[in-house]
Design a protein around this nucleic acid. Structure first.
Length: 427
DNA sequence: TCTGGGGTCCTAGGACCC
DNA sequence: TCTGGGGTCCTAGGACCC
């Protein structure tokens, strides 16, 4: 039996912890550059504001107080997330953190009512200690647990926000009432393809002949079907497994023409990737850089390209990764175009402890390691960019996203968590 | 005027090998 | 120069997730 704990309207809930006057109001959190909506309060959902809605389309609504728009503060959300996960981890073993606001965990073999009661207490505990409302679904498989959590969230009669899908007839009834596109793993394209074959709800997917399903779709779809049938068929990477790739990219606040300015962005992305590799004790061998214009500007010629550089030996050193990224960037940059986005990805990642290098490479790597360790040590102590190994500013920082709705207050909020107080981000 | 920033897994096809 | 079946590895691209 699996459970999924899912934080309700997570980013908005975090903002409300720090600013209770947001309670009861329509609130949305906006992506970088205040571009589009990435989180909505229930009140905002009720106004019909869709996920991903461009900010400029949010206008007058029936609420005379209007819609509160906030710029995302991901550092704050990560911190809140860790607090929630810590409590989950203190109550259950084998927590699988699936995203910043969701985690799966295994439940012991107990009867449904006992489990329910225990999970209700967990929801209360998280709210009391962190201030974040959470919904929990539990069922024989993760896919069903995810569905149950959705139902727990949406059912207005379910004040406890815990829902089990355990008995076969409950599952069957629930699946019949679940539109196929609400199934985890079924997105837009697959919804269309399934509907064309008469599959409109989750129960119809369960009944679809498996061999035909396999011939029409990929193995993933067969796994989803098995999950809905109650057979455990998917797994989640435990958090301590290193990433297979690390990416850092931004959409610029406006289109940029200057090679120097974009190189500035690429350099920063690459340095960020290198730091994250070191934090994970990983090394990467492949550095990919991409640049692209603005889809939405039909008045400008569109250009997009990417380039990969393979390093001779895997590394997490800032100088090596930055220089590979800049080399890749200069090979794809074309004069005369306007650029809106760039990104750096490092991949072909290996564990730093499991790499064999030849003598010369090892000498060099060892020097780099010592140097980077010293740099990271100083930066951790004194602040992010106290020391940098490469000039981290080639241009004027034109690429940096604009954020105009970030909370301005700075204060320390004490909650009775038994943990250290949460410090508000200064904008 | 204004449309995010990360990630994962799967498949098909080409290169290469015996 | 021709021949076949079968394997592996790599890459690009598509689909999905939050």
């Amino acid at each position: 039996m699996y459970a999924l704990a899912d934080c309700n309207n997570f980013f908005v809930s975090c903002e409300r912890v720090f600013n209770p006057s947001l309670n009861g109001r329509a609130v949305v959190v906006l992506s970088g550059n205040d571009g589009c909506v990435i989180a909505r309060s229930n009140e905002a959902k009720a106004l019909g504001i869709p996920m991903g809605c461009p900010a400029f389309q949010i206008k007058d609504h029936t609420d005379p107080r209007g819609v509160v728009q906030l710029s995302a503060r991901h550092i704050v959300y990560r911190d809140m997330s860790q607090r929630v996960m810590m409590i989950l981890g203190s109550e259950f073993e084998k927590i699988e953190v699936y995203s910043v606001d969701e985690a799966f965990f295994k439940l012991p073999d107990e009867d449904e009512e006992k489990l329910r009661a225990r999970l209700v207490r967990l929801v209360e505990k998280i709210y009391r200690y962190v201030g974040i409302p959470v919904s929990i679904g539990f069922a024989p498989t993760r896919t069903l647990a995810k569905l149950a959590a959705e139902k727990a969230k949406k059912d207005p009669m379910n004040r406890e926000r815990v829902k089990g899908l355990v008995r076969q007839n409950d599952i069957e009834e629930s699946l019949s009432n679940t539109s196929i596109d609400d199934v985890w793993g079924v997105g837009r394209k697959l919804t269309k393809a399934l509907r064309q074959r008469g599959v409109f709800n989750a129960w119809q997917l369960v009944q679809f002949p498996t061999s035909l399903l396999r011939s029409l779709f990929s193995i993933t779809m067969v796994r989803t079907q098995a999950e809905l049938r109650g057979i455990d068929s998917v797994s989640i990477n435990p958090v301590d497994i290193a990433h297979k790739s690390i990416m850092n990219s931004r959409t610029f606040g406006h289109v940029i023409k200057s090679q120097r300015e974009i190189a500035d962005a690429v350099l920063n992305f690459a340095a960020h990737c290198a730091k994250q590799l070191r934090d994970e004790h990983s090394l990467a061998r492949l550095v990919t850089v991409y640049v692209r214009g603005d889809h939405f500007r039909e008045d400008l010629p569109f250009y997009s390209n990417s380039c990969q550089v393979r390093l001779e030996t895997p590394t997490s050193g800032t100088p090596e990764i930055v220089s590979a990224a800049l080399q890749a960037f200069h090979s794809i940059f074309r004069e005369g175009f306007y650029y809106r986005k760039a990104g750096v990805m490092v991949s072909d990642i290996v564990d730093a402890g499991h790499v064999q290098l030849d003598v010369f490479a090892e000498q060099h790597a060892s020097k780099t390691r010592k140097l980077m360790a010293a740099v990271d040590h100083i930066n951790n102590a004194l602040g992010k960019k106290a020391v940098t190994l490469v000039p981290q500013q080639l241009g004027k920082g034109e690429w940096k996203p604009t954020q105009s709705h970030t909370a301005r207050q700075s204060a320390t909020l004490h909650i009775h968590t038994g943990m250290s107080p949460i410090r508000k981000e200064k904008s």
